[in-house]
Amino acid sequence: MRRSQAVGGHPVRQSHSCDRLVEAIGELVARLDLPQGTLDLLILKTLALEPQHGWGVSERIRQISGDVLQVQQGSLYPALHRLERRGWIRSNWGVSDNNRRAKYYELTRTGRKQLEEESRSWRTLSTAVDSILDMA
């Protein structure tokens, strides 16, 4: 049942006729995992608030989204490393709140620019999708 915990695969408790459609979309997204750009955007946004380790990033995303979004743990680290290679984030070893060595990631200047750009295009996209959905 791991699949249903992934982003979008979250159980939907609405009872109208869209139920099945949403479920279908949810399954589709779950199977594709989180689209790469989306996960990147979420990570960048999370790190924009403060430097964070991988665990912190996944917890923060979960908390802020009110348990709606849960990053599939397995794909978090490849994404972090990819972003680091691209120079959008950089990492440093630090000490965590419970006194353990942890690897902290922070946003770089190019990362910040990238975040702005991706947020903008995400908003454009979601506005467009919203307006189509509102037509009904």
Partner: peptide
């Protein structure tokens, strides 16, 4: 462990991220 998934698979994917 179950939630995180297979460690060696994650590592493999990370290595791919290294390019």
């Amino acid at each position: 462990r179950l939630e995180l998934g297979r460690l060696d698979q994650i590592k493999d994917e990370c290595r791919q991220s290294w390019g």
